[in-house]
Design a protein around this nucleic acid. Structure first.
Lengths: 243, 243
DNA sequence: ACAATAGTGTCTATTAGACACTATTTA
DNA sequence: TAAATAGTGTCTAATAGACACTATTGT
């Protein structure tokens, strides 16, 4: 860096340009009672005071080093979960979505196992509630364009389920193949053929048997653990529901 | 909107919060002389003065209604092209990518047919050059994290070619199946089997014969036109090169 | 006729879907 | 032994890959 550039940077004052306000919003999604749920928080400030909105907020330029840090921070504040599956979905920016100003939001989606969340305790609070992803409509009058954003997340979920192993992130650390199949079915909104499903998943080599069994009033089922960290496995052929 | 909210908005001054600076960058990609090329512009200002960078810049809150408007505006300034295939790739934001400040950039990729561009005229200018997408390295010392961004675009291109019809956007309005196959091959970096390729594309029903033929020193080839506007067709099985 | 490229016929290999079957538990 | 769910055997259908073949042009 030469003196010329150093001088330029010393004189640079980013606050003197008119720029959009930039936020990060997160769709925190979980699977509970056979339904996909998304967390919404009641806004305690203008604009859209008292409306339900995705958790989110401004980048804290002191505290956050990256956009992912902002997303992780917000997620931890709301759920206490530190290492979820977190994926950037897209960024919306225009001059009409926020009455204050030209506004940009970077949207993340987090998938969290319900067993890491104390869903009932959180429901007791007035401020946070879990909504069924499929039942949200215009009538719910969400803040900003958050209904559109949630629908975009739902579409992304659905389409990724067709060719990835993404639903594992909605389950507990160990799970049966039937539980995994149900997660796929709930996201896709169809039933899947058992044998094909099991073959697809097992042939992919992405699960490891834990050695434990899940017992009930019937034949016990093998428990598996996902073997691929926070990454998804990509199949090179879509699952049936896609057709 | 009630009086309370109106008062809040009247008093709201977005410039008093410290926020990241936000830009839009575009990877403009074309196919020329059997190679993928990306357009870079030489920076005439600090920071990274005189380094090559992706075209891009700040959202103009007066002129642009949406982020896509900003991308289209930048693209038009550089190429004169108004309606390209334009896709949002992702958004990078952190406190280290720009020496001025915490910085966010929303990255778009545009695919443009080489026959809409006057590549030679542009190469004559000192300010803009087309670089082979596969030959850019650290040694080129691109501005900011633009090499990383370009590599992310390259990865996205490659992976989408495995299951979409995306390469049609790199060709002229009418093209032969052999030209389309070559575009796929260049992006994938492999050769494809002719019969499978043609069957896949024709069975998808995404092309329409123009009725014209392309002639040369050999059997003439049917010319086709893409039948799907700016959307991609999604195949439910990946192409060979994927394995 | 030959070179060059366009375009096809058809066999094989792979894998998803269908569906009936067997296995293992509790009550 | 019945109910319930886990898990398998195996046939069929769909489709991608391989590759040899035919077709049509200019020279």
């Amino acid at each position: 860096m030469n003196q010329d550039e150093i001088d330029y940077l010393n004189k640079y004052d980013s606050s003197k340009y008119q720029t959009p306000i930039t936020t990060v919003d997160i769709a925190i999604v979980t699977l509970h009672e056979q339904q996909l749920k998304v967390m919404l928080a009641k806004r305690d400030k203008h604009p859209f005071k008292d409306a339900w909105a995705l958790p989110g907020g401004f980048v804290d330029v002191k505290q956050d080093q990256t956009l992912e840090d902002t997303a992780h921070r917000k997620l931890f504040e709301k759920t206490g979960v530190k290492t979820p599956y977190l994926e950037q979905i897209y960024t919306v920016g225009n001059n009409s979505r926020d009455p204050r100003s030209w506004s940009i939001t970077v949207v993340y989606m987090a998938l969290v196992s319900a067993d890491l969340l104390n869903l009932h305790a959180q429901n007791a609070s007035e401020q946070i509630q879990w909504f069924s992803l499929n039942e949200l409509t215009q009538a719910d009058e969400l803040a900003f364009d958050h209904l559109d954003i949630i629908n975009a997340c739902k579409d992304r979920l659905r389409s990724k389920v067709e060719y990835t192993s993404l639903p594992v992130h909605l389950l507990a650390e160990s799970f049966t193949l039937t539980e995994l199949q149900q997660a796929f079915e709930i996201i896709l909104g169809t039933t899947l053929e058992k044998k094909s499903f099991r073959r697809r998943i097992l042939d992919a080599g992405i699960l490891k048997e834990t050695g434990e069994m899940k017992t009930g009033n019937n034949r016990p089922a093998k428990l598996y653990r996902y073997n691929g960290n926070k990454n998804n496995h990509f199949f090179n052929r879509n699952i049936e529901g896609a057709r």
